[in-house]
């Protein structure tokens, strides 16, 4: 809840750099921000970073409002204004404005101005960069999905487990990738994964089948339920997490909603605000320290935000270790007792 306060400073967003700071610094950096869903936390984090570091910037903010057709206009405007740097929000904006590898057209894309992207879940798969170590192009950026290893470490730090369970939508490619990664990780770390697909009917997953799958996992001796970032599961999160609670199966979610607005026990995510700050950090490397964008690696923030759903914890009597509790954000609307 606290973090939503950040949203309230939206009003301040469009006021650019305070005049006092501008007077001190001879020439602020001009940054063109191309947004997809308006001013939100990543953009705020991006802006706050410069304010906190006392780096004078002049932000030129444009909102596509999820309208792809506006993006060529943005590119034209960038070419006209010639800012020092371009910030692109999300996979679509980044792909359209910066171009996909192999199909970059200097006439249609921005090539001569360094660019940073944020909130791109899979920059390699999206065709933006060939590797996370270096883009090899005039761009860099921050990812926002936690690696599977980080997530497993987080779960392990709550309680060591031997058997991880998962219910998934067999039609969702992301889930299949997650299964693949977890299996590989399980082999090296030493746990087994039992992943059960939701039943399909008419080429669609059946929500009603979820509870049975959870029960099956419990019966198979699963220690913890892993909930992948999956649209189908997100929509039916109450069914899934409710079933887990009923089976007294602790659950971990790789997304915020199952924990904050449903009954998953805990979760680990990266905050958009932090991702925005990290993107600004990378922009600083380019603008202030003169690094080439290709020399700045693409990575997620260092620290995962941990959310703990306290009522579920109490119901399961599956308590978090003190250290983790100290780091976590606790969701506890009613409070104890």
């Amino acid at each position: 809840m606290i973090r939503r306060l950040a949203g309230l400073v939206l009003l301040a967003a469009l006021t650019l750099v305070p005049p006092a700071a501008a007077a001190e610094a001879p020439k602020p950096f001009r940054i063109y921000m191309a947004l997809w869903r308006g001013w939100e936390e990543a953009a705020q984090g991006f802006k706050d970073y410069f304010a906190n570091q006392n780096i004078p910037v002049e932000l030129i903010v444009r909102n596509a409002a999820q309208d792809k057709s506006k993006l060529p206009e943005f590119v034209a405007e960038v070419k006209r204004l010639k800012p020092d740097l371009v910030f692109t929000w999300g996979t679509t904006v980044s792909q359209e404005m910066l171009g996909v590898i192999g199909k970059v057209d200097p006439a249609r894309h921005i090539t001569d101005i360094p660019a940073v992207f944020a909130i791109v879940s899979q920059p390699i798969e999206a065709g933006l960069v060939p590797s996370l170590a270096s883009s090899g192009r005039n761009i860099t950026g921050a990812t926002y999905l936690a690696s599977m290893e980080t997530q497993v470490n987080l779960i392990q730090s709550w309680r060591r487990f031997r058997h991880l369970g998962m219910v998934y939508n067999p039609l969702e490619a992301n889930s299949l990738v997650a299964i693949h990664e977890l299996e590989a990780l399980g082999r090296s770390v030493g746990f087994t994964l039992t992943a059960l697909p939701a039943d399909l009917a008419d080429g669609k997953p059946v929500p009603a089948s979820i509870a049975a799958k959870v029960a099956a996992l419990k019966a198979a001796g699963v220690d913890i339920l892993y909930i992948p970032p999956d649209t189908f599961l997100n929509v039916h999160r109450d069914l899934l997490t409710g079933a887990a609670l009923e089976q007294r199966l602790p659950s971990y979610a790789a997304a915020e909603n199952p924990v904050v607005t449903s009954k998953a026990m805990f979760g680990g995510i990266y905050r958009y605000y932090t991702v925005g700050q990290l993107t600004a950090y990378k922009a600083e490397q380019i603008l202030v320290h003169g690094k080439a964008p290709s020399a700045v690696a693409i990575d997620p923030p260092r620290r995962l935000s941990i959310i703990v759903n306290m009522p579920v914890v109490r119901a399961l009597e599956f308590y978090p270790p003190m250290k983790l509790l100290g780091l976590a954000e606790v969701v506890d609307p009613a409070g104890a007792k």
């Binding site: 973090r3 700050q277 935000s305």
Partner: peptide, 8 residues
């Protein structure tokens, strides 16, 4: 770490 700026 929750994403709040220091001054808030």
């Amino acid at each position: 770490a929750l994403g709040l700026p220091l001054r808030q």
